[in-house]
């Protein structure tokens, strides 16, 4: 796919949000991913041109951040947190199980192009460990069985819902949200029991 004039004008819109054009670079690269599925050379060239940098400067930035992918990502990006707490609480066994299930490893994409797997670091959801993500939407309190069902549903294009967030869309769709374009999904539920644990305990204690 190529970067169209529409995308270029959206890139310029991102630039216009900032006092200095270069500040828009990270969102711009997210937008490139939303169009191309990863950060392509063309995407780097276009960003360089729009911001007034060399392609080397943009490559330097793109290669620093783990969210920017060098190869095409599958329809869905699936992350399994393997930082200490999640790993010990089941993240490691989830990882083993689904890599076996899919026959792929870290940073690899299933043959059907549906899923790219990644061992991810802490997602700031430790109260929901072990944590997985689908296209960076939270899949909290996972276990092996839930993970297997999740993978199977994703592969068969069944509806999957984030535990704190909307119905799962695609990696490209969410990249656009992250880039800073509204998707109308703000009202999807985002609060759960763990987030209310303290409030409930306080009310129980009568404070």
């Amino acid at each position: 796919m190529a970067i169209t004039e529409t995308t270029k004008s959206e890139l310029r819109e991102l630039i216009s949000r900032y006092p200095e054009p270069r500040s828009a670079l990270l969102p711009m690269l997210h937008l490139v991913q939303s169009v191309e599925g990863y950060v392509t050379q063309e995407g780097i060239d276009v960003c360089a041109q729009e911001v007034g940098l060399t392609t080397a400067e943009v490559s330097a930035v793109a290669s620093f951040y783990t969210m920017f992918k060098r190869y095409p990502v599958g329809k869905h990006h699936v992350g399994v947190c393997v930082n200490s707490l999640c790993a010990l609480k089941g993240g490691d066994s989830i990882w083993r199980r689904i890599t076996n299930e899919l026959g792929i490893g870290h940073d690899e994409t299933s043959a059907d192009g549906q899923i790219t797997l990644e061992r991810i670091e802490c997602q700031a959801a430790c109260t929901h460990a072990p944590v997985m993500t689908v296209n960076w939407e939270f899949m909290d309190d996972m276990d092996e069985a839930k993970a297997v069902t999740l993978i199977s549903n994703l592969r068969s294009n069944k509806e999957v819902k984030s535990t704190r967030g909307p119905k799962v869309r695609t990696f490209k769709d969410v990249s656009r949200t992250i880039a800073g374009f509204d998707d109308g999904l703000v009202d999807e539920p985002g609060i759960d029991e763990a987030m209310l644990a303290g409030l409930k305990a306080a009310k129980q204690a009568g404070s």
Binding site: R17, L26, Y65
Partner: peptide, 27 residues
């Protein structure tokens, strides 16, 4: 107010790295 998205780098929690990142640089 601009809401800005990072791109996956723990170091950007360090305030000066965050500023470089917000300027569109390596964090």
């Amino acid at each position: 107010v601009v809401v800005h998205s990072g791109a996956g780098a723990y170091i950007c929690g360090e305030e000066t790295a965050l500023l470089d990142s917000l300027e569109g640089r390596r964090g």
